[in-house]
């Protein structure tokens, strides 16, 4: 069972829960499990094509899933999946 860490800005869509336990075997399925349980998260996590949004990264442990096997990255019991919003900006 993998644990998905919900970033603070999205917790208003998860009844203020900071994490979600997913039973799926890979990252993509686990994220779908999350958005099925909390539909309000979906629009903030996925774009219109069902892909993870441009300014969102998904990590398994300390590894970006883009460096692993993307949504097909396998998860095991105890795996930590983090949804990480890109934080950037600037004065101009």
């Amino acid at each position: 069972m993998a644990k998905i860490i919900i970033p603070t800005p999205l917790r208003k869509f998860t009844d203020n829960q900071s994490s979600f336990q997913a039973t799926s075997g890979n990252v993509g399925e686990a994220l779908n499990e999350l958005t099925t349980a909390y539909p309000g998260v979906k629009g903030h996590l996925f774009d219109d094509n069902g892909q993870v949004r441009q300014f969102i990264k998904v990590f398994v442990g300390e590894d970006d899933i883009k460096d692993l096997d993307n949504n097909a990255t396998l998860v095991e019991s105890g795996t930590i999946i983090s949804i990480v919003p890109a934080i950037a900006g600037g004065c101009i």
Partner: peptide, 22 residues
């Protein structure tokens, strides 16, 4: 974050990646 030699007003760049709640 800081805005050196600029006003403390969010830029378009700041807005593009801003998140709700924060």
């Amino acid at each position: 974050h800081s805005h050196p030699e600029h006003a403390a007003i969010p830029s378009e760049h700041d807005l593009r990646q801003a998140l709700p709640y924060f």
